[in-house]
Design a protein around this nucleic acid. Sequence first.
RNA 1: GCCGAAGUGGCGGAACCGGCAGACGCGGCGGACUCAAAAUCCGUUGAGGUUACACUCGUGUGGGUUCGACUCCCACCUUCGGCACCA
Length: 882
Amino acid sequence: MAYDHRAIEQRWQHFWEANQTFKAERRIGRPKAYILDMFPYPSGSGLHVGHPLGYLATDIVARKKRMQGFDVLHPMGWDAFGLPAEQHAIRTGAHPAKTTAENIHVYRRQLKQIGFAYDWSREINTTDPGYVRWTQWIFLKMYERGLAFQAEIPVNWCPGLGTVLANEEIIDGRSEVGGFPVVRQPLRQWQLRITAYADRLSEELEPLDWPETKQKQRDWIGKSEGAEVEFPVEGREEALTVFTTRPDTLYGATYMVIAPDHPLTLAITTPSQRAQVSAYVDAASRKSDMERTALNREKTGVATGAFAKNPLSGRRIPIFTADYVLGAYGTGAIMAVPAHDERDFEFARRFELPIVEVVSPDGSLHENLERAYTADGIAVRSGAFDGQPTAEMKQNVLAHLERQGIGRRRINYKLRDWVFSRQRYWGEPIPIYFPVDTAGDPRQGAAYTIDYTQPIAVAEAELPVRLPELDDYRPGDPQGPLARATNWRFFQKDSKWFARETNTMPQWAGSCWYYLRYLDPKNERELCSAGAYDAWMPVDLYVGGSEHGVLHLLYARFWHKVLFDLGVVKHPEPFLKLVHQGPILGTIYRYFGAVDGESGALYAGDDANVIPIDGPGDVRFALKTGEKLEERWANEPEIEWRDGTPFLRGRDVRVVPVSEKMSKSRGNVVNPDSVIAEHGADALRVYEMFMGPLEQMKPWQTSGIFGVRRFLDRVDGLVGRELGTEMDLETAKLVHRTVKKVGEDIDALRLNTAVSAMMILTNHLNGLPQVPREAAEKLTLCLAPFAPHLGEELWQRLGHEPSVAVAPWPSFDPALCVDDTVEIGVQVNGKVRGRVTLGLTASEEEAKGAGLADSNVAKFVEGKQLTKVIYVPGKILNFIVR
RNA sequence: GCCGAAGUGGCGGAACCGGCAGACGCGGCGGACUCAAAAUCCGUUGAGGUUACACUCGUGUGGGUUCGACUCCCACCUUCGGCACCA
């Protein structure tokens, strides 16, 4: 009874391709929907079953919208610049472009066999010269506006990758890709002035229909409102300016701290402290991010010997330098208020500095604080401000400082400018060149000097700047591998020599604006035409992994806002609604074995009799009797089930299933190709949607797909039966409710319960002597977005012309979706004791009578005093007795 | 440490504007079909209890609000994700 999925799926995939069923076109008077997936990086290992999850959700939404008469843009492309292709090139010598093209070929084939409703005529590839041209064009526009600039700055240099990294690409002092250590090192870099957009990037999140990602971005941008205050330094003209969010605690500032890398640190240091301070500054500059974040919990610092004057209290306060103050945030110096800041408190304790309470929870004075009091309160020891609550005092102090001209309101951000150059080959060349001072021909080895202070933009007409051919792609040189392509790098113009920029753009560049290129992918005159923009933008639904919550989504919003200011786009935000699909986990099975190895090994099985111990390497567990054990892992084929418990095949060793992110090294990857070959693309699609809520993390269970395939076979069987014209009321109600629920669930991306609803209908229809035609048709139409191949097949079998993809979405009769009678629970003192069927409009008297007529209810009420009756029509009847 | 999300049968999950907890699927058990197996179909399946019913317990833990709490409030525990000296 199983249908032939191979034949059906191939036939309809060919049909869609031949008929261009999913070509996106705008028609007068139709609503539009732009439904976008985060396009993949085509890696060498192909897709695993986790990849299509988000694509399936959008595909179902897109297919339903199309059936509802929307013009739908649902495109796909490739984010094809990236490290893996380049690393492969270094190992094998194969050109990254070649590897990338091969990988794309595999990805395209895999996606097509899943049956996505993409408009493949709009496919884009970020490495195409026709695409790179516009990425470079946007860069030049930023350069013209001063948003792209060079600076010699300490950057995050990753020797393992031979390149610099953006702050966002570093996790715990290591590279996000590869996990290599990162060190601080000064280098000439291109940066993008994302900080100029910090406020808009933070504030304009507000109206978007996004999940928690909104808050993550806000936190990353880290807007904080406060004040800049000047502290006069003894014996110097210029004051030391600090940033604080707590101007109300100014009277409690008992010392100051200046960052080791602050330009004034050495200048203000007194001769007697010079040696100590220089040593501290040196040590701090050599520390990598890792050391600073991981090891440096204990506060360190050195007195500079200098003193400042607290502008409000008039008190003479010492100036320290300490690395808990960051040179790059605020002004690089702080006023320290140990009584009301945990870090300052810790430092003050360590260096025996005075701790003066100036904010009291209740207005009374406290001595010998045990810890910093960081909450709001009432001002004390604050001169004329005493007694003011924190919020009020902030305003008053600010006003006072502004009148005196020694302070002003100020907003600061954690966000830093985006280090935008990479010392790698496989990226977009930065379209800039520099004058060269040389006596001969640098391509022939003549000595030369490049004047990096005079960057020149490549003329728009000369875009794109293409990558040169290279024999050796290895990184390592801070100038990047492109510096080795001397014939490409150096050129003459008006008999002067010039050198191209040899850094390339980071992987994120291409994905910052790709959603705009889909609108008009072949346009050679503009990145997209105004007509194409107006037809489709903004993106109505964007689905992708939450790992891109800060990186890609922040960068893309930034570029979009720049393009908005340029007049290229007309909306301040590109993505109205964002959803993150959860990862699909692979399952492996854990057990324990003796360290000695296979021969005579002691197999301890599951966790029950095993305890963790401290030890080197893999030996982190032992039997309770003391024998040391190693953690071992088995995957699905090595497992057999006995009475619902997994065992190691052929052995008496119990194993414990553990779900983890799918990865090659764990051997828990499930390949969609094999699932499709065995069960069909429709079964894969429906199973992935049925697994659970889209946004949740879910373990893949191969057995689950059997149930889904059985369901599809049942639907196939139903529609194959002789159909009737009559439909009984119960069936009609269920059919119409299912149509309603499936439609609503798709709109809300509750795809799992939509599938469940269709299963319920199918089970019901299967029990009928004859299946009504209307039921079969509506079920087919509901199922079509989920299982489109089977949907087409059944639609045709029902006597309709293809394609079901453009058939109208089924309607439902609201009257059939509400019950006139309903079964409700009858409670006595809040416990359910019976149930009665009542009309929705039944009065309390009727309900009471019906409820008491239930023998079991009567039993609990009998002999007691009925004190109250709670009746919510259609919901509950509750008798309160005493 | 801070921010965010989540804890429900053997498993994935459903219900959550407070109103019959466990839909749907997997797995298990029993049966039909078969020489047999697979596939398919039917029944059953939270725990305790009972011949059967009744009944008792049950949505991470402890409290609270309510006629009534998986759902709301407070405290805590655990898991996952993010940030991490940002003044």
